[in-house]
Design a protein around this nucleic acid. Sequence first.
DNA 1: CGTCTATTTGAATGTACTCAAAAGCGGTGG
DNA 2: CCACCGCTTTTGAGTACATTCAAATAGACG
Lengths: 192, 192
Amino acid sequence: MEPILHNIAKHVTLTEEEKELFLSKVKTQHFKSKSLLLNAGEICKHSYFVNSGMLRSFNINDNIVEHVLSFACEGWWISDMYSYISQKPGNLFIEVLEDAEVVVLSKENQEVLYAEIPKLERFFRILIENSLVAHQERLMDNLSLSAEERFEKFCKKYPTLIQKIPQKQIASFIGVTPEFLSKMKSRMLRTK
Amino acid sequence: MEPILHNIAKHVTLTEEEKELFLSKVKTQHFKSKSLLLNAGEICKHSYFVNSGMLRSFNINDNIVEHVLSFACEGWWISDMYSYISQKPGNLFIEVLEDAEVVVLSKENQEVLYAEIPKLERFFRILIENSLVAHQERLMDNLSLSAEERFEKFCKKYPTLIQKIPQKQIASFIGVTPEFLSKMKSRMLRTK
DNA sequence: CGTCTATTTGAATGTACTCAAAAGCGGTGG
DNA sequence: CCACCGCTTTTGAGTACATTCAAATAGACG
């Protein structure tokens, strides 16, 4: 079965017709590593569900430093939520880290689906609730944990990502420079 | 009209019966300053909508330092989202900063309302979407802005809160020590 | 194989923290 | 109504964590 239907089935149960309607409103696309699905300053017109490969969203601040907001691999959704819901220009980039197959849902079709299949309102509410909880936890971690503790937590939480994400991206995600993460790692090995 | 109905009306339109049903599922309560609506380790059984006064949610880390997750004054919702949706013990406190009148919605009644009034599913989805966007922005700010820039942004964003929130709470919210915020303020006055 | 990018390492620097003490402020009780 | 107590804010000195800049090394990709 389509992975995205499996994802939906975790929270709500669709009839066969509803599944078909849903699939008729999305399209599957392939993207090469390093391609940009969204540029800062653009309006985010789509939400992406990852079938395979990996994406990330990030911004770039005045000092030309990148900061990763989120990674998305198999089974994860990604978009620029701010821009997507407001349909105003956002400041996130969405980039492919690993050749990816993604399911693309447009904002317009999302609205159509909400109207046609009220259960999806519930599905996305639950999805967003979980995302909110994750972001709140990450925010509190940034406020209350040391860089080392944040890194350890990241390793425990995403053991698979450690293998395939470049270290500088992980550094950016946990909020340190790549140089410092490198030093931290060797220090952690030495003192352990 | 009830402020909470006004709040709901910003996103969805309820019939008179639906409004009545909604109001029958919530209760209004008064809380004195400094009282705790939720203790870390407890299961969060309620969501709160603030009619008047002010609340905050925060956690306490191993070093016994408090970190504010959010403030809530007139027209804002507050709860421990993680604990509320999972019904597991959370690690947030919810405390009254200023004598408050709040509308209390229990998790059970929330579920009843979702079932009886599907439009509320949409209302809370939108509410949570907005909250997610705000938390994402705050997270990125913590990663990419200096303490001074975060403070300036806070002042611009919540000019009214500056007046009534103790400075140490603001420090905790933007992620610095109260001593440092104090020094930062005097430095900003001097160099301006 | 060569080029480009990522990672490591080191030295110097800076931002924010800790600890300590003094000053300010608000609420409460005598 | 004033005095006192507790909490918040300010100020200062010393420190630590993380950054910047630079250079060397390693690794990936065409």
